[in-house]
């Protein structure tokens, strides 16, 4: 029996001699237990011949896409023709339904704007978006549906601001 000189704790005979074997044995058992519960494959399959076909699909969208530019030349005259027809139509429509003002942001339907944000991954934090939007012409009511009562603002500040100094208010404006 070994004795620790400093605090008098004992360990069973041979404890340290076969510690490594016992540890490895335990790890082995745990591994075997994991393997017995967990399936080794996950059961996914692919359609037959998929991998031989996917190379073609990828190449047609990358390498071949670049090569296509040369081909366009032979169709150039058709493009000129199409452009001429489009120009005539534009002229006719332009003359008949001449609008007083050019299309502006206001003309976009809200649903289209919503759909754009739905489809597009903006990947920016609210702080980054805030940096992009100029604040000069922006009123609080532009971003809020309902007006906020002054009382609500005071109530919010009262509940959420511990030290009024944190707000860095410029008191000189109010004097």
């Amino acid at each position: 029996m070994k004795k620790d000189k400093q605090n008098g704790f004992n360990t069973p005979e041979g404890y340290f001699e076969n510690f490594h074997e016992r540890l490895m044995d335990k790890i082995k058992k745990e591994k075997a237990q994991t393997e017995s519960i967990m399936p080794k494959s996950d059961g996914f399959g692919v359609p037959e011949g998929y991998f031989s076909g996917v190379t073609k699909k990828v190449l047609s969208k990358t390498v071949a896409e670049n090569g296509k530019v040369i081909q366009l030349k032979s169709f150039r005259k058709f493009y000129y023709g199409a452009a001429a027809v489009a120009a005539v139509f534009l002229l006719i429509f332009g003359l008949n339904w001449k609008s007083d003002k050019p299309i502006s942001f206001e003309d976009l339907a809200n649903t289209e704007i919503d759909a754009y944000f739905e489809r597009t991954e903006i990947d920016m934090s609210t702080y980054e978006i805030a940096e992009l939007i100029p604040l000069e012409n922006l009123e609080l009511n532009d971003v809020l549906d309902k007006d906020i009562e002054a009382e609500s603002i005071l109530e919010y500040l009262d509940e959420n601001v511990e030290d009024i100094e944190d707000l860095n208010l410029d008191y000189t404006n109010y004097e």
Binding site: D42, F44, V46, F51, T55, V58, L59, T62, V63, G67
Partner: peptide, 26 residues
């Protein structure tokens, strides 16, 4: 063009299985 084809053929299966295990649907 040739090198890209080699690249696609070398990695398509490994990348496929990596993606499949995330999005599940073929």
């Amino acid at each position: 063009a040739k090198a890209f084809e080699v690249l696609v053929n070398t990695y398509k299966e490994r990348l496929y299985w990596h993606i499949r295990r995330i999005v599940l649907d073929h």
